[in-house]
Design a protein around this nucleic acid. Structure first.
Lengths: 216, 216
DNA sequence: GTCTATAGCAGGATAGAC
DNA sequence: GTCTATCCTGCTATAGAC
């Protein structure tokens, strides 16, 4: 990342660096001065392109975060294939692996879910955007896939909560790295990330069985 | 909460209001001026009692957060009883219900986990304290309990990850209320909280089976 | 479209009276 | 221990030259 190419125009450099900083430190903790220092431009350039700080933040979601999320979703769809209804195991594995390994680089993924976790913990106008454009379409798509296999599921309620449970794990293992590392004693190297992915898949797959049984 | 008693001394009022505000908006977003307004005292009083803002924040954890967490843990131990080894179901249910309903009021709990989620997403010196004083003792205690029932569990690795998975759900459903509400269409009323509690117990209990099977 | 310069304000922290 | 008054830094945002 940090493509400080003098070739890329100022506006794009600002967006790139702003996203990194907002993810790392949160909206309030990042000053415009910090952003311009990283993107090697002038203070006034930010206001010229984005008017005010808040708009820059929202533009990060519009032009960087959302397209990236859609790329992940596309990868998920492709990895399932368009054939016959997939098994829950296949769906859960594809979902987890797409998100945890998927098309994103390690830095992109970390940045992506840090931003998302921040928005959910302390919503701004961006959360509405995220939910409308990304979460709701994705969740209802996966619900649809699982309903083909779990027609028993009492209400969509149970399925939705299970999806949120899966999602919470993925989010947590991404944004709470410091705590996870201290607790488990393991660094986020390749081996541990693979271990995590397997764990989330197994845990969630069994968790989903609860939905099946509940649909009595 | 917000015990603005003029009886309580200034120091305590400052801590109470600071905790609420830090939980709601995060460290950087809260100004000392905001805190003194809520705790009805003077700007200089904060510096008199805590020296600087950072110390106030840490003191919130030392004198408010940690004791509360320990109260929750005590409740958990008592609810299990000191008899023979409990079943995983009993442990998981006791854990979830203690945390989600437990000895805390609704406001306390929300505040508690908001603060915790913030610390994990963006660690300060307080995270070390939290982990050392609260998370590690608690996790190893529960691991101990579960090991009596799951002696098969390959390595403690799997058990620890499962505990983190449970924990991530509890944390998520607490700090991401806005998103959960928008996605599920349900408010956090009594009924939904009971539903959530049941869901987390069921999902996690089945998830734990993964550990059993893995210990092949 | 990018720069320099600066207005204008909010925040953390301190001095010193009571 | 709590107050008023004040300092000073660092921030957002704008004006205006190039």
């Amino acid at each position: 990342m940090t493509k400080n190419d003098t070739t890329a125009n100022t506006r794009e450099r600002i967006l790139d660096e702003a996203e990194v900083l907002f993810a790392r430190k949160g909206y309030r903790a990042v000053s415009i001065r910090e952003i311009i220092q990283e993107s090697h431009c002038n203070l006034a350039a930010v206001n010229y392109h984005f008017g005010q700080k808040k708009n820059l933040y929202q533009e990060v979601f519009r032009s960087r975060w959302i397209p990236r999320a859609k790329r992940v979703q596309e990868t998920f769809k492709k990895s399932l294939g368009s054939g016959s209804p997939s098994s829950p195991a296949a769906i859960v594995r594809a979902l987890t692996e797409t998100i945890i390994q998927g098309p994103l680089t390690e830095e992109e993924r970390h940045l992506h879910y840090q931003l998302m976790a921040r928005e959910q913990a302390e919503p701004s106008e961006a959360l509405e955007l995220i939910i409308r454009e990304v979460m709701q379409p994705f969740f209802s798509e996966i619900s649809g896939l699982l309903c083909q296999v779990f027609p028993e599921s009492r209400e969509d309620d149970a399925l939705l909560l299970s999806l949120l449970s899966m999602f919470s794990q993925i989010l947590y293992f991404s944004f709470a790295r410091a705590a996870v590392t201290r607790i488990t004693g393991r660094e986020y190297d390749r081996a541990f990330k693979a271990r995590l992915s397997d764990h989330i898949v197994m845990f969630s797959l069994h968790g989903l069985d609860a939905v099946k049984e509940e649909g009595k």
